[in-house]
Amino acid sequence: RIRTTFTSAQLKELERVFAETHYPDIYTREELALKIDLTEARVQVWFQNRRAKFRK
């Protein structure tokens, strides 16, 4: 699998949801994935990585 490059619009939306909750449920992730045209798996991994970055 190649590395996913996020558009600024996708990042803006991901960060907006992250500001609300660091642990979005499956429904939130799936809805977000559809909205920004990514797979739910990519959204899930983005949140994992974002939480790791947040803890640092």
Score class of each variant (00 low, 15 high):
Ile2Phe: 15
Ile2Met: 12
Ile2Glu: 15
Ile2Tyr: 12
Ile2Gly: 13
Ile2Trp: 08
Arg3Ala: 14
Arg3Glu: 15
Arg3Asp: 15
Arg3His: 08
Thr5Leu: 09
Thr5Glu: 14
Thr5Cys: 11
Thr5Gln: 08
Phe6Asn: 05
Phe6Thr: 07
Phe6Cys: 08
Phe6His: 15
Phe6Arg: 02
Phe6Glu: 10
Thr7Pro: 04
Thr7Glu: 02
Ser8Arg: 10
Ser8Val: 11
Ser8Trp: 07
Ser8Tyr: 05
Ser8Glu: 13
Ala9Val: 11
Ala9Leu: 09
Ala9Glu: 14
Ala9Met: 09
Ala9Asn: 11
Ala9Lys: 09
Ala9Phe: 10
Gln10His: 01
Gln10Tyr: 00
Gln10Leu: 04
Gln10Thr: 03
Leu11Lys: 07
Leu11Val: 13
Leu11His: 09
Leu11Gly: 04
Lys12Phe: 07
Lys12Trp: 06
Lys12Pro: 05
Lys12His: 10
Lys12Leu: 10
Lys12Met: 10
Lys12Thr: 13
Glu13Ala: 08
Glu13Phe: 02
Glu13Cys: 05
Glu13Tyr: 01
Glu13Ser: 04
Glu13Ile: 04
Leu14Cys: 03
Leu14Asp: 01
Leu14Ile: 01
Leu14Thr: 00
Leu14Tyr: 00
Glu15Gln: 02
Glu15Met: 04
Arg16Glu: 10
Val17Asn: 05
Val17Gly: 02
Val17Ala: 09
Val17Arg: 00
Phe18Tyr: 10
Phe18Ile: 01
Ala19His: 11
Ala19Ile: 06
Glu20Trp: 09
Glu20Arg: 10
Glu20Met: 10
Glu20Phe: 11
Thr21Trp: 03
Thr21Ile: 06
Thr21Met: 04
Thr21Tyr: 05
Thr21Cys: 09
His22Cys: 07
His22Asp: 07
His22Lys: 08
His22Tyr: 01
Tyr23His: 08
Tyr23Lys: 04
Tyr23Ser: 07
Tyr23Met: 00
Tyr23Asn: 07
Pro24Leu: 01
Pro24Met: 01
Pro24Ser: 03
Pro24Asn: 04
Pro24Thr: 00
Asp25Leu: 01
Asp25Ser: 10
Asp25Arg: 01
Asp25His: 03
Ile26Arg: 14
Ile26Ser: 12
Ile26Phe: 13
Ile26Tyr: 15
Ile26Gly: 10
Tyr27Glu: 15
Tyr27Asp: 14
Thr28Phe: 05
Thr28Trp: 05
Thr28Tyr: 04
Thr28Gln: 15
Thr28Asp: 05
Arg29Ser: 04
Arg29Pro: 03
Arg29Phe: 01
Arg29Glu: 00
Arg29Ile: 15
Glu30Thr: 11
Glu30Asp: 05
Glu30Ser: 14
Glu30Ile: 07
Glu30Val: 10
Glu30His: 09
Glu31Leu: 09
Glu31Met: 07
Glu31Lys: 10
Glu31Asn: 02
Glu31Val: 11
Glu31Pro: 04
Leu32Trp: 02
Leu32Gly: 01
Leu32Val: 09
Leu32His: 05
Leu32Met: 05
Ala33Ile: 07
Ala33Ser: 06
Ala33Cys: 07
Ala33Thr: 01
Leu34Phe: 12
Leu34Thr: 15
Leu34Trp: 09
Leu34Ala: 14
Leu34Lys: 15
Leu34Glu: 14
Leu34Asn: 12
Leu34Gly: 13
Leu34Arg: 15
Lys35Ile: 02
Lys35Gly: 05
Lys35Asp: 04
Lys35Pro: 03
Lys35Tyr: 01
Lys35Ala: 10
Ile36Leu: 15
Ile36Ser: 06
Ile36Val: 14
Ile36Asp: 02
Ile36His: 08
Asp37Ser: 11
Asp37Lys: 12
Asp37Pro: 00
Asp37Cys: 12
Asp37Tyr: 00
Leu38Trp: 09
Leu38Glu: 14
Leu38His: 04
Leu38Asn: 09
Leu38Asp: 11
Leu38Lys: 05
Leu38Tyr: 01
Leu38Arg: 05
Leu38Gly: 08
Thr39Gln: 07
Thr39Glu: 11
Glu40His: 04
Glu40Asp: 06
Glu40Ile: 07
Glu40Gln: 09
Glu40Thr: 06
Glu40Lys: 04
Ala41Pro: 11
Ala41Met: 06
Ala41Ile: 07
Ala41Gln: 13
Ala41Cys: 07
Ala41Ser: 09
Arg42Ile: 15
Arg42Val: 15
Arg42Trp: 12
Arg42His: 15
Arg42Asp: 15
Arg42Ser: 15
Val43Leu: 05
Val43Ala: 04
Val43Tyr: 01
Val43Asp: 00
Gln44Gly: 11
Gln44Pro: 03
Gln44Val: 07
Gln44Leu: 09
Gln44Met: 08
Gln44Phe: 10
Gln44Trp: 04
Gln44Tyr: 09
Val45Met: 15
Val45Tyr: 08
Val45His: 12
Trp46Met: 02
Trp46Thr: 01
Trp46Cys: 03
Trp46Ala: 02
Trp46Ile: 01
Phe47Arg: 01
Phe47Leu: 06
Phe47Pro: 00
Phe47Asn: 00
Phe47Ile: 00
Phe47Gln: 05
Phe47Lys: 06
Gln48Ile: 06
Gln48Val: 10
Gln48His: 10
Gln48Asn: 12
Gln48Arg: 12
Gln48Gly: 06
Asn49Ile: 07
Asn49Lys: 13
Asn49His: 10
Asn49Gln: 15
Asn49Arg: 09
Arg50Lys: 09
Arg50Trp: 02
Arg50Gln: 15
Arg51Asn: 03
Arg51Gly: 05
Arg51Met: 05
Ala52Phe: 09
Ala52Pro: 00
Ala52Val: 10
Lys53Phe: 00
Lys53Thr: 12
Lys53Pro: 08
Lys53Met: 15
Lys53Asp: 14
Phe54Thr: 12
Phe54Ser: 11
Phe54Trp: 14
Phe54Glu: 15
Arg55Asp: 08
Arg55Ala: 15
Arg55Phe: 11
Arg55Gly: 13
Arg55Leu: 14
Lys56Glu: 14
Lys56Tyr: 07
Lys56Asp: 11
Lys56Pro: 04
Lys56Gly: 05
